[in-house]
């Protein structure tokens, strides 16, 4: 990573935790874990609370839907680390590899319900162009998405717009597919806290 403190600047307790994670998973600790555990009171701990609520709090969107939203946000910010991480969690949550691949390859043609497609399209525009209009929101609502569902989707975008920008800014290493899959299983089972 571009800041050495994020690789090696953690306190002794956190370093011990990393050693345990490494021994238990037999994989190197992912850079996202190193980021959220560095001076956690400043950013990692309160951000993880936001992310957990957005991704695992009560919602009409399924966990798979929300992981797919995270992957689309990552794609809009050209963040390979987060595309791979959240498409892996979405694949596990949906138990459907083809659907996730189809959405990331061509959102307009992917075999998903229109409300989800319209929501993903809106999120992608928000992240790429930094705003969406009231007319664009009306188009999403017109597909049958509730106002609350839009709010829930925007919460996902808030969390992952932040995370993907930081992954790119700090230069997260792309882990092996084994390490990424181990991380995805953990996220599906335990969430983001």
């Amino acid at each position: 990573m571009r800041l050495s403190i994020l690789d090696k600047g953690h306190g002794l307790g956190t370093k011990a935790l990393f050693a345990l994670i490494g021994a238990a998973s037999r994989q190197p600790v992912l850079d996202i874990i190193k980021l959220v555990k560095y001076r956690a009171d400043f950013y990692g701990k309160p951000m993880s609370a936001v992310t957990h609520e957005a991704m695992r709090g009560p919602s009409e969107w399924s966990v798979g839907d929300r992981e797919l939203m995270a992957a689309i946000v990552a794609q809009a910010n050209a963040c390979r680390f987060c595309i791979e991480a959240h498409s892996a969690v979405a694949r596990l949550a949906y138990a459907d590899e083809a659907k996730v691949a189809a959405v990331l390859a061509d959102l307009d043609a992917a075999p998903i319900p229109e409300p989800l497609r319209a929501t993903l399209r809106m999120l992608r525009k928000l992240v790429m162009e930094h705003s969406v209009s009231a007319d664009e929101m009306r188009a999403v609502l017109a597909t049958g998405v509730s106002r609350q569902q839009v709010e829930d989707a925007l919460a996902v975008a808030f969390a992952f717009d932040t995370t993907t920008r930081l992954a790119e800014a700090f230069g997260f290493a792309i882990p092996s597919s084994q390490a990424m899959n181990a991380g995805a299983k953990f996220l599906l089972a335990r969430g983001y806290r």
Binding site: F42, Y43, S131, A157
Partner: peptide, 27 residues
């Protein structure tokens, strides 16, 4: 570390608030 995280959160926050305002207008 602090300035970069503040910049990223700030950008996500502006987008979030602008989208919530568009949603309020739309609904």
């Amino acid at each position: 570390f602090e300035l970069a995280t503040c910049a990223a959160v700030g950008q996500a926050n502006r987008q979030y608030e602008s989208a919530m305002a568009a949603l309020a207008q739309a609904s």
